Structure formats: structure tokens, C-alpha cells
Amino acid sequence: MPSAAPDAADVQRFTAALQRLTGRDAPGRLGVAVSGGPDSMALLLLADAAFPGMVEAATVDHGLRADGAAEAETVGRWCADHGLRHATLRPERPITGNLQSAARTARYALLEEWRVARGLDWLLTAHHADDQLETMLMRLNRGSGVGGMAGVRGRSGVVLRPLLDWRKAELAALADGAGMPVAIDPSNADPRFDRAAMRARLGDVDWLDPVAATRSAAALAEAEEALDWLSDRIAAGHLAASGAGWVLTDTDYPREVQRRLVLRMVALADPAASTPRGDTLDHVVATLRAGGQASLGDWLLRGGARWTIAPAPPRRMVGDRAGGEAEGTDGAQ
């Protein structure tokens, strides 16, 4: 049975958000990621009402829950009743390891493959203001910087999140009012997962405003973009190849800009190297500011008027004159 249409005001609110994110009055063809929960079902309802004939949906069945297949079928039936094309996507290999992280990686890979195959311009996900607040608090608890505290971005490449200024309760009411079938994923309340534990702690907190937090996250995202722009401009003018490494010829910048310049040096020297973060990166920057030298994996960075990165010299092996074992210079002497 077809669901009731959403209010015109809600559709206009959604349309305006999507137009802001894309910079287009007519965003193009939209792919909607739909788990079957109230948030994503409400997203699908709004997208179809705002841009009829331009929407397709996909549900990822990770194979982690017995109900996953049935929930995908429910979404598929709703789409069929409303003339929408729907696909159920499944990973080729079982999800293992850190389940939430691995499932997220597999999900976005499957959705992007589907988006490209279907010729869709954008992929929409149902992240909302309550999700944003949870993300910010989790990252605050980990000591994140500007980029981390910017939280979930409204736009990441072709991925759009037009519901970041909507509350979870609003979306649930929208889906309920339209008579949509919704599924409840029990893992969303499983305290073994960090986000679920944070969600439970926020359940009785009424003095934190998720929508205000979303505005703060957006401001931090703009600050992050500005810092990256500045760092790119500096790198373009003052970071050059030097032998097997790189040299930064102008280093007199605020510490946060210096952090970003060091990251660019490491990435240019070794694109496959892991990105230094947190205390490791802070230690390197402090050492270079003091004119010292610091090692990062196979690379040696030196401070001073100019900062350089070059392959670290091989460990000097000291042989025992009497024929004993050789040992590295950093071993017990």
C-alpha cells in the first residue's frame, strides 16, 4: 500500500538542504542508502517526494544478522509499491575483524560500485543531528583535532548527508506518519559498541542540543578546509624535492599549519607510509621546531631554518672484534 506523502514544508526543507550541498537546483540522479530503519526510510520518502523519477535505492545485507535479508526484502517491496528501483547488495566475503568498521568499509564500497553501475550522480545517507553529536563526543573523548571534531561531513565527494540538521525523533515521526514499514537493528543498542554506549548515555541528557552541535561541526569543517587550503598554498611555494627526499624552505608558521606541512612531507616522500597522528605527530613537530631530528619509520626528518625529510641511514652494525654477534647501535651495549 502506498505511504502517505510527507508535508510540503518537510519536502521543501529537504530540497533546500540537498540544493545547498550540491550547489544545483536540480541535483541529478540520486541513489539512497536504505537500511530499513526509520532514519533511512524517512530519507527515501523525502527524496522521492522532492525529486520524483530521479531516485533509486539500495540496501546492504552484510550477512551479520538473520533478519538482514528479510529487512532488505521489506525495503524492496516498499520501493516496488512506489515505482522505485531497488537493489540488495551483499559482500562477496564474510565480514570479520572489527565488525562495525569492517561492515562500514564493505557497505560504502558496495554502494559506490552500485552507484557507478547505475549511473547515479550522488549517494545519500541518513546521518542526522543526533548521529553528529555522538560522533563529536566520541572524538572529543579521543582528543581529536579540528578535522576530527568537524564530525560527519555534509558532503564527502559524491556522498551527501542532507539530514544533518534533522533530529532522529523527527525522522521517526515522519516515517511513522507515512505508515512506512521500519526495522530496528538491535546492534544500535548493544553496549559492546562504542556508539551504542554513547547513545545510551545521551538518552537522558536534555541540555545538549544536537542541532547546535551540528552547526559547530559545520564551522569546524570550514576551518579544516581553510587550513588545508593554506597548507596547500604554502607547500606549492616552499616544498620541493631534494635528492631522495623533500625540503620545506619556509617553516615560520603556527603549529597547526606546521603539522599539516609535515604530513604533506611524509606523504610525498612515501605515499604508502602510515599517517602519523596524535602524540607521534606532536613529538615530531616539537622536535623540528627545536631544530632537532626525528625518525618516522624509514624516514629521518631534520629541523632548523629548513625542514627536510630523507631516507633514514641504515642502522650501523657493530661487530664483535672477537667474532661475536653484530648488534644494532640502539641495542644494549
Rank of each mutant, 00 (worst) to 15 (best):
T96I: 05
A80E: 15
L64C: 12
Q12A: 14
G63C: 05
S101P: 00
V11Y: 07
L43E: 04
A50H: 01
R65C: 07
P6H: 11
F51M: 00
E73Q: 14
E71A: 15
A72M: 08
L45N: 01
D7N: 08
R93H: 12
G97A: 03
V60A: 07
G68F: 03
L44S: 09
S35N: 15
A47Q: 01
G36I: 13
P27W: 13
A80H: 15
R107M: 05
D7R: 14
G23K: 10
G23R: 08
A26Q: 13
D10G: 09
T96K: 10
A58T: 01
A50W: 07
A69C: 14
L89N: 05
H62E: 08
T105C: 00
A42G: 14
V32Y: 04
A57W: 01
P6R: 09
H82G: 07
R90M: 04
G28I: 14
N98W: 01
V34P: 06
T59Q: 05
A66M: 07
G76I: 01
V75K: 05
Q100V: 05
N98L: 01
G23C: 09
P94V: 11
G28N: 13
G36E: 08
A102L: 00
A33T: 01
W78Y: 14
Q19T: 05
T88N: 03
D25T: 11
P6M: 10
G76S: 15
G83L: 07
P6N: 08
A26E: 14
V55I: 06
R104G: 05
P91M: 08
A103D: 02
A57M: 04
R93Q: 14
S35L: 14
E92Q: 13
L84V: 13
S101L: 04
R85A: 08
V34K: 10
R20C: 06
S40P: 11
E71M: 15
D67R: 13
T105E: 07
R85D: 05
L45D: 03
A8I: 12
T96M: 03
L99N: 00
F14E: 01
I95V: 12
C79H: 08
Q19K: 09
A103M: 03
G97V: 01
M54D: 06
G63A: 03
L99S: 03
A103Y: 01
E71Q: 15
A72L: 04
G68L: 02
D10V: 00
H82A: 06
G36W: 10
R20Q: 12
V75D: 12
G53I: 02
G63V: 06
E73K: 14
A58N: 02
H86P: 07
A106C: 02
T74V: 15
R20W: 02
R104N: 07
A17P: 00
L84E: 01
G28W: 15
M54H: 11
T88D: 00
G31R: 06
A57F: 04
D48K: 14
V32H: 04
R20M: 06
G68V: 05
N98E: 04
V60G: 03
F51V: 04
I95M: 04
A49N: 02
T15D: 09
D81Y: 05
A33G: 06
A106Y: 01
G31N: 05
S35G: 13
A33K: 01
L46E: 02
A26F: 10
F14S: 04
E73V: 11
V32P: 04
D39E: 10
A66W: 08
L45M: 07
A33D: 04
L64R: 10
R13M: 06
V32S: 03
S35E: 12
R20P: 00
R65K: 15
